[in-house]
Amino acid sequence: MEILLALLVGFMFGASVYLMLSRNWIRYLFGFIVIGNAVNLLLFAVGRVELGHPALVPEGLLAPEGPVANALPQALILTAIVIGFGLLAFALVLASRAWAEFETVDVDEMRVAEPREDAAREAEDE
């Protein structure tokens, strides 16, 4: 199972890298979402996986009996999921604003802060 997870995580990484290299903002955002999931899975797998056994202490005991899932990566991932959502929502607001301002979803066309080299050179000459 560990090997399958490792392959899945690598596959998700590859797909999202390709998506993020797209000129289209929207595809980039899909890559952004997928890579968030891939990283979370990666962290989860690094903490070792075990079928069943949530990290809960049963009634009447002071500590879980037998092996349970590693709680630390879970805690990290749980907060990461929520933060990832916050960032995604912010990125969507940004994308929406960009669309309203530039009427384009092509990242190569959004160059207000860093104009193209030829345009920059012209501005320098002036």
Binding site: E2, I3, L5, A6, L7, V9, G10, F11, M12, F13, G14, A15, V17, Y18, L21, A38, L42, A45, V46, G47, R48, N70
Partner: peptide, 24 residues
Amino acid sequence: DAVLAIAAGATVSALLLAVLASPL
């Protein structure tokens, strides 16, 4: 772009496998 994506994905897989191969 595809070559880079595949290379990056394969690297992550290999890295994760290497981590899982070492004791926790």
